[in-house]
Write a protein that binds this DNA or RNA. Sequence first.
DNA 1: ACCTGTTTATACCATTCGGTATAGACTACA
DNA 2: TGTAGTCTATACCGAATGGTATAAACAGGT
Lengths: 195, 195
Amino acid sequence: MPWEKSFDEEVTLEKAMHVFWEKGFDSASIADLLDRTGINRGSLYNTFGGKQALFVKALLKYDQDKRRTALAELEALDDPQRAVGEFFDNMVAVTIEDPERKGCFLFNTVLECPTHEPEVNEIVANGLREIEAFFRRCIEVAQARDDIPKSVDPSAKAKALLALALAIRVLGRSPYCDEGLQTIANEAKALISSS
Amino acid sequence: MPWEKSFDEEVTLEKAMHVFWEKGFDSASIADLLDRTGINRGSLYNTFGGKQALFVKALLKYDQDKRRTALAELEALDDPQRAVGEFFDNMVAVTIEDPERKGCFLFNTVLECPTHEPEVNEIVANGLREIEAFFRRCIEVAQARDDIPKSVDPSAKAKALLALALAIRVLGRSPYCDEGLQTIANEAKALISSS
DNA sequence: ACCTGTTTATACCATTCGGTATAGACTACA
DNA sequence: TGTAGTCTATACCGAATGGTATAAACAGGT
């Protein structure tokens, strides 16, 4: 190795991730990516391959660093009701606190699916599947502990929770009132407590 | 008037609407709009002003022709429970039947809000507000008729229904299974029937 | 000191972007 | 039959698009 890279690939990828996260694939230009990462044009193509490849890497990083990590932490609580509650409260807090109102990179990409490569669609589909599975497991465990009535359909309720989570993140990007987001989150929590 | 327009402005606007609906503002190019409307470059700028102005007109047309019309029809049923039920069933049907998977133009634009002019944000905010108000009125009327328990908070449940509706339309653009959409719709209906 | 291999910086590429200007085609009215 | 007024077609604009090529700067191995 005659020479070392002057930038950290992981740090750079994270910066690129934020660009795609904010703007989406089409609206993020190479110039944007170069500006925000600070790296050189050649370096970008050498290291990451190109815009499309960089997007995939960025989305995978988000999926790994944010979604997987967050779900794993909640699951480690070993308290399903609290896990779901914290999931939604955290989500609302993160949404409101972000001055850039980026929303969730994964959910944002859901809307772009029709124009994306199958590879991207696969990452999105897998992410949605795992979030839903997380909710389903929460419900099933709570049922086994008699915290939730057996009459509740875990699969159906899990889908509803996924839907509400997505909506909170999407509405968070728009001029929808912030208290409304918390109200929706509370409805989500109520979904698996009383009924 | 020395000469008549060779195209119907309303029909052309509808075609343009479909382009923005499919692709969103940024990804829809002037070339796309010219191709799909069939009109001339000059005609587009003369008649509609430009890309931005055309987008606003298209979104307003959608809001008028689709959202307002649909809500008015449902409200005319004078049967809140059925109105909400049909709202969600129709929504799932329309989503699944559309081969282009465009979703809902208004909901799609929610995600683009951060990059849009205040004028567009205002249209979006108003649309969301009115959909939520529709749900709220449905609940309140049903409560007045003792079809829904008074313990239900109309405002909160209306927000949850709005969220579920949005999620169905957004998920409909992705490789999320179609049966799942109907499941979410059923959960929405259940929200205001039992509890 | 001289290669070797990698990273830089920069110039360059064709294409497309949104938007404008101009010239010609056309109909209605005088 | 002008002629006025509005349409269409097309050429054109500078800027930005994603992507490539080239050449200099650099550190390690021998």
